[in-house]
Structure formats: C-alpha cells, structure tokens
Design a protein around this nucleic acid. Structure first.
Lengths: 238, 238
DNA sequence: CGTAACATTGAGGTCGGTCAACCCGCGTGG
DNA sequence: CCACGCGGGTTGACCGACCTCAATGTTACG
C-alpha cells in the first residue's frame, strides 16, 4: 500500500495528500508543489503590512479570503458575550489561516506583532483550481493538517491541568516558531497565552514560575524561555 | 464578489467549496455532487458491521482509511498515559471520520452502539480523484466543515463552566442526531459525555439533574432528553 | 430474581479563579 | 536627572466550582 501511494504520487497530486508520504523525511514535504502553490498565492494575492495589535478580520465577516503570514504573528479569536476572549490559534510566519469554510461562523483575527500578510481571495484561488488540479489537493492537505492540529489542541484543552496545558503550549511553540535550539521567543503576551489555554494570566504566570523554580525552564526578559530539561517537560505534559 | 463566485460555481466545482454558497438555502447543499461522492465511496468502499463497544481503529494505526458511518454511533478517542480517556468526537449516521491527515498522530475509534460503517482506502479515493476533480473538492469541503466544527468545540471547551459545556453539548446533539422535534436520544453513556467534555461523570450527572430541576429539560430513561425551554438553554450556553 | 453495568447522590478536599496589591521596564515630560 | 504614568507581569489571600472517593440507587438482561 505504501508502494501504491508512492507510485501514485508521481502520477498526480491528490494521492500525496490523502496518503501520508511516509517515505519522505518529516521536515521535507513535497517541496516543488508546495512552492508552486506559494507562487500562485503570491501572484493572485496582495501583501499587506499591519502594525501590532490591529484587527485584520472582524467576527462574522464574510469568509472569502485566505491569509498567509509572511512574517510576524497573528491570532484568531472570538469574544464571548461576557467579555471573555478565546483565542482560536496562533499563526506564525509561513502559516495559513482562514481555511475553515465559514458556515457563517467566522473567527476574528488580529496581529500580535507587526506582521506582513499575504491576502488571497478564495474565489480567485477557486478559479485557478479549475485548471490546476493539484491546487485543490494542496488546500486539502493544508486543511487536513490544520484539522489534525486543532484536534491535538482539543485533547490538550479538555482534560488537562494548568501545568499540562502550559507545558503542552511551550512544547508546541518550540516545535514551530523561533526556536533557536533549546529556547523559544514567545511573541504573545501572558494574556494571549491564557486566552489560548483557557486559563487566567495569574495561573499562567504562577505555572511558569513553578516550572522555573524546579529547574525545568529558565525565563529571561519575560518572553524568552530556555528549556533546561526537555525530557521533564515531555513527562509533565503526559 | 458574490456575483463572481456565483458565476464560477456553475463553471466548476471547487469554487463552491471555497466560497460559501450564500445564495442557496442552508440545508440544501450541492446535493447532486454530494450524492456522486457517496456513490463513489459506496463503489470503492466496503461495508462492515460492528457490535457495540468495539474498537475499530487502533491508536497509531496507519491513517490510510476513511470511514463513513451508515448507521449507529462511533467515537474517536485517545487514552492518556494515566488512564484518562479523551473523546475526540462523536460520529452519527452520515458523518465521516478519519479526515485529519495523520502526521503520525491518529486517534483510536470505537463503536458506541452497533454500527454499520463504510470503509474506504484513501489511496483508492486518491486514484479516483485524479480523473474526477470534483472529488478532491468534496473532500476539501468535508474537511473544512470538520475543521470549523472542531474549532467550535475548542471554544466550548476552553473557557466554559461545566453547565455551559453540558448545555452546549445538548444543543449540539439536538442539531445533529436523532432529534425528533424537541428531544434528543443520547446514544452515549455519561462516561462518554464526561470524556468528551473534559468533566467527570458525577459533574455531568449533577449538571443534568440541576437543569431538570429548574425546569429547563426533562430526562426520561436516562438517555432521552426533552427540551422544555430551548431559549433558556441557549442563554445558559452564553 | 439476581447480577452487573450504569447512574445518582453525598461529603470533603483541591486546583485554579477572583480580587487586590505590588513590581518592573519604558517612554514622556518637566 | 527624577517624577510620573502606563501596560504588562508577578505575588498573595481567599473562595468556590469541580474532582475524588464512597455509598446508594436504577436499569437492562440473563
């Protein structure tokens, strides 16, 4: 079956999306095609610069756009009726958001830092997809990946203690993002982290301090986290 | 822009997926195509019958299959190292699971009731997708829909009280599932609900009782819930 | 009728939320 | 140079919602 998918992979694209490319290294995805998607997006999209802490998508806005973060950090969120804010996700350089097909329910989005964002109309992308079959396949792959990511997040959120959530968050950020070796630079505030994890800033703060206190991490300038013992973190995460 | 998408929609399929079909009624999706996808799946897939409480997908199993529930109820889940179980989602008749493109992380799946399930190899589906462009588009739509659904769940889970979660769950189940008018038949046990919402069975039980006690719902034979005041529920959900 | 699985109910402990005070770095302006 | 304010972060005291553990009740099914 693996060989089957490998054969198919060269014949046309969607196969590569539906079947995991087990034979390739985890970091090197089908690059050539990915680049072609990027080229298309850069061709039909328009680059916009946003300052930090600016709303770029309003809640309930028509979801006819796709956004690719070129640089900076963006988050999607929703404000509940009682004022609480829930962050749907953080999007770093290279990430794409706006993939969820509306059904009316749209998340708002705002910049966390200054950001350069590529904005693409879905309708234009759809027009391209009619001639370029691989394009739809790419979007499918990206959406499936995002789905897997969000499902992972559901697991993190639903049955875990504050410590497990914070540790899970740190590990997630170290996998993505500006992780030079064994440390992460967190672009978001404590409030953002709290709203992402469904905790309060006080709890986030206390938990981070507790982790530093037991020698697992090292915090410098509030936003920079160094891992002193990643194995301990992995264990704490469950 | 809306007119643009409307024009495109008839020219080819993916446009309809990427752009929300604003002009069509919410309940009536592109039916003809949806049926064609179903026909394909029934052609290349195989129907399997499972008794209740049987594991049909193991954790870390290769994710090369797609599953469509014909009848019955299935859930996906993950067992944590300390024995806690987290349910990823419930899938009722007509629902499809297995869309998330693995990346190694796979959820297990088991039947809650007796179930009839259509199993399709993704590689076969991918082969079909090469000749039938609309197919990939469909999968994209389904995946995007599932993504939106899971994101909704993240909001429900992360910052809500037990009552809000339970109410949210009841309302979700009444939208899908066997909701004859103003009541729902819950196929899953209290333990399942608890594992889905990240609560304990005791809390679920107490919350349901509290809702019945204040006249909002009516519980018969443990699994049947009648809504006496849906507006109150919507309000409680925030 | 008896058993086992499922569900409810109660009592008590704990984790994380709430509220409030304080700290710290930074920019502004005197 | 300091005073000041401001936003973000930390710390502490207290409290309540939810978890834990244990007993009891109910339903399904042989």
């Amino acid at each position: 079956m693996l060989t089957h998918s490998a054969v198919l992979k060269n014949a046309f694209h969607p196969a590569a999306l539906l079947d995991q490319p087990v034979q390739s290294k985890p970091t090197s995805e089908p690059q050539a095609d990915e680049e072609s998607l990027d080229r298309w997006m850069q061709l039909v999209g328009s680059v916009t610069y946003y300052p930090r802490r600016v709303q770029i998508v309003h809640e309930d806005e028509a979801a006819d756009r796709l956004y690719k973060v070129i640089s900076g950090t963006v988050c999607t969120y929703k404000v509940l009726s009682d004022g609480r804010r829930q962050i749907g996700g953080f999007y770093l350089a290279g990430d794409i958001f706006g993939l969820e097909s509306g059904e009316g329910h749209t998340l708002a989005a705002e910049t966390i830092t200054n950001a350069k964002v590529l904005v693409i109309r879905k309708s234009v992308l759809a027009a391209l997809a009619s001639r370029n079959t691989a394009l739809t396949g790419h979007l499918l792959m990206l959406t499936a990946r995002e789905l897997a990511h969000v499902q992972e997040r559901v697991l993190l959120l639903s049955s875990k203690s504050a410590q497990e959530r914070v540790v899970g968050f740190l590990l997630e950020m170290s996998k993505r993002g500006t992780s030079s070796g064994n440390s992460v630079e967190l672009p978001m505030s404590r409030q953002d982290i709290a709203d992402y994890l469904g905790l309060t800033i006080e709890t986030v703060s206390r938990t981070l301090w507790a982790l530093e206190n037991c020698g697992t991490i090292e915090i410098s300038r509030r936003r920079r986290i160094r891992f002193r013992s990643r194995s301990t973190l992995v264990r704490l995460q469950q």
